[in-house]
């Protein structure tokens, strides 16, 4: 894959943004020398830019990724549920990976539920999130890089989308779970990356003798590497 770079200057801050489709194509840049001239002469000549073709910063196809991170499961269940995640992915194609991940949550009643418990001895009939095991797919929507002045380098990133399904074990309640969302991966080096995921979670959980549908959100921040 090849991407076309555009460079602009803005008040001392320099940034470069290059975005292309995952299956993007190299394109020809217009030749400044061939630009048509108007009746009014240019006050200053445009800067000359070179057209360069760079290799991809990080190649993922047919490689494994492993990652670990922190997350927070929010289901409106009166539990605070910070958690940790480990996982691995195999990129069958450059943009597409098969993924598995396991999360554990250290859940505790939130302040409101604590007050109810201390007053009445009652607790929510929701189960404190414990374990979540998911498998699914992750797709890189695109690939880009961003140069921010002062950072000393270019940020290589990928917007992603993903969908998973699996099971949960929340305080002994075992049931189906699924999530789907968007991710934003930033390569720190060609082999190291960090990623932010934002997912919507759906689960079926037994509460007060009935199975109910539970929706939640699951943001996470991961750090990983390519093998």
């Amino acid at each position: 894959m090849r991407c076309r770079d555009a460079v602009a200057l803005c008040g001392g801050a320099v940034f470069a943004l290059s975005v292309c489709g995952a299956a993007g194509h190299a394109a020809d840049a217009p030749d400044p020398a061939a630009a048509p001239r108007g009746l009014i002469a240019e006050p200053a000549p445009r800067p000359q830019t070179a057209i360069r073709v760079q290799p991809r910063f990080a190649v993922k196809a047919h490689l494994f990724q492993v990652f670990a991170g922190a997350e927070y499961l929010s289901r409106g269940d009166f539990y605070n549920s910070p958690g940790a995640r480990i996982g691995a992915a195999y990129y069958v194609l450059e943009p597409l990976a098969l993924e598995a991940q396991l999360s554990h949550y250290w859940s505790s009643l939130d302040a409101e539920a604590e007050r109810v418990k201390e007053t009445l001895g009652a607790i929510p009939d929701s189960h404190p999130p414990g374990w979540l095991a998911l498998v699914g797919a992750r797709y890189s929507i695109g690939y880009g890089k961003l140069m921010v002045g002062g950072l000393g380098g270019v940020i290589h990133f990928e917007p992603q989308t993903f969908v998973h399904a699996g099971v949960h074990d929340h305080g002994g309640d075992v049931g189906p779970s699924a999530d789907a969302g968007l991710g934003f991966l930033v390569f720190l080096t060609p082999r190291l990356f960090t990623r932010i995921d934002a997912a919507l979670v759906f689960e079926r959980e037994s509460r007060s003798g009935q199975t109910v549908s539970v929706w939640g959100t699951l943001p996470s921040l991961s750090l990983g590497g390519m093998l």
């Binding site: 927070y72 929010s74 289901r75 409106g76 269940d77 009166f78 539920a113 109810v116 418990k117 009445l120 001895g121 009652a122 607790i123 929510p124 009939d125 929701s126 969302g181 968007l182 934002a198 997912a199 919507l200 979670v201 689960e203 959980e205 509460r207 007060s208 109910v212 549908s213 539970v214 929706w215 939640g216 959100t217 699951l218 943001p219």
Partner: peptide, 25 residues
């Protein structure tokens, strides 16, 4: 919107407060 919802820690599901397994009743 998804990011916003995610970071806003939204969620829903029918929840009732019930005596804990060890609450004297």
């Amino acid at each position: 919107m998804l990011l916003a919802a995610s970071w806003a820690c939204l969620g829903c599901g029918e929840v009732h407060f019930v005596p804990s397994p060890f609450t004297p009743q």
